[in-house]
Design a protein around this nucleic acid. Structure first.
Lengths: 233, 233
DNA sequence: CGCTATGTTGAACGCCCTCAACGTGAGTGG
DNA sequence: CCACTCACGTTGAGGGCGTTCAACATAGCG
């Protein structure tokens, strides 16, 4: 299903994407390059590990997860991605993708054909810089996640994830309490824990009055305490 | 101490840096922007967490580690950096750095002043793209590390790290056996393990004839086995 | 030669995993 | 409307991987 394209100028997530610093005039160049928006249903894949360069995507609505599978079957979720993110770029031309991207909810993406977009990046320096900044920002976020996996215990990891998700959801203008489309297995696969232990630890955080997670709604009851438990500087 | 600057065209690590795709003519523009090389002694810092935008660096020789400290004193080493890497960029202007960079050996860096380099990135599209590719590559590497921390046991993590370091050292043209300037505490802080357990696990890998680590020299005795133990696809 | 950082080895503890059983809610089809 | 199914979450008991604490080598360096 392909919703009708609409003007980039009126794009709802414009200021959270790589297009943020562009003028309306420059945005029209992007508009000339991009294709129709595309709807990806929950559970569908935007990218598949091992694939070779399809189109790029900008997430316009919905949640996406980036993950990869290890030879022994284990799944590492690298990141939960919110609207505004840019997906699908591979630094080495001709190489295959090292990770997959799956829709956690129904997702709308802006489709940017590879060739044209690369050309556009060369022509519009602001876009190229914005693109680069996004990548460095992603690295910084990955580093934070490393600190969780390497140096925090289960309680701290979960606190950190919830803190991070709430901050980013707020920044992205989502309604609160935030609706998290995550199962405890997702949380476990992101944090290097078993679903069983996620359940126990989450219960402890609930019992301590720090968060409330009824259904898939996350409500932070004590933000300061959550940050403290998360070992956030 | 400031070694004399020399021509970018003759730069020994030119093809491993963001300058790789540039023509000699474009390289001269870089040369006009950059400052003298700088020597950072072992243990010295190139970047400090909490600092605000100094110059950028390209590592020309030596080993660097990127790390950050948690409020409880724990240290997470994010990455061991080899010559060719680009350091010091912050995606959000005005924000402070989230991690530190320390020299593991005496290090030589090419110093690129912030303002001039950002201008150069705008003017030379090839440089901007190369810069962006480096960032995305860094993210991909961080993702791999996440998979280690989240889904591999101690033996697999260490095997993976050694495998990765050997591959990158080889790619970077270093002599073999590779001289690793790492203590077991460094390895532990990168992999989320205690030095004690690193010692035990490394001994097991040695006893199994997979690697040999005498002094700080790493020799891979059974590369296939190492890759298998590392759960490399 | 002594000092300090680093690596090794042993023993006991604990966080998290594994296995297992059961509860719960949404969706489906009768 | 109910019975059924299946995914997801909860709770309990026991075990293992890695930690912690401690003592002792070993090596680099003044």
């Amino acid at each position: 299903m392909q919703p009708a394209p609409h003007s980039c100028v009126g794009c709802l997530v414009r200021h959270q994407t790589i297009c943020a610093p562009l003028t309306d005039a420059q945005l029209r160049e992007v508009e000339a390059t991009r294709l129709h928006d595309q709807l990806v249903p929950r559970g569908g894949h935007l990218l598949r590990s091992g694939e070779r360069g399809g189109a790029f995507f900008t997430v316009k609505s919905g949640w996406v997860m980036l993950y990869s599978l290890l030879p022994d079957g284990g799944r590492q979720i690298h990141e939960f991605v919110l609207p505004g993110a840019f997906l699908g770029f591979q630094p080495e031309s001709g190489a295959v993708l090292a990770y997959s991207a799956e829709a956690l909810t129904d997702v709308t993406v802006c489709v940017l054909p590879r060739e044209g977009t690369v050309r556009l990046l060369r022509e519009v320096p602001e876009l190229a810089m914005s693109f680069a900044c996004t990548a460095w920002h992603a690295q910084a976020h990955a580093f934070q996640q490393q600190a969780s996996l390497g140096r925090r215990n289960a309680r701290e990891r979960i606190a950190h994830l919830l803190h991070d998700l709430q901050q980013r959801a707020r920044q992205s203008g989502m309604a609160e309490p935030v609706s998290l489309p995550l199962t405890q297995e997702h949380i476990g696969d992101a944090l290097g824990l078993t679903p069983v232990h996620v359940s126990r630890t989450l219960k402890a955080l609930r019992d301590d009055g720090i968060v409330s997670t009824s259904g898939h709604l996350l409500e932070v009851l004590d933000s300061a305490r959550l940050a403290q438990e998360a070992l956030v500087a």
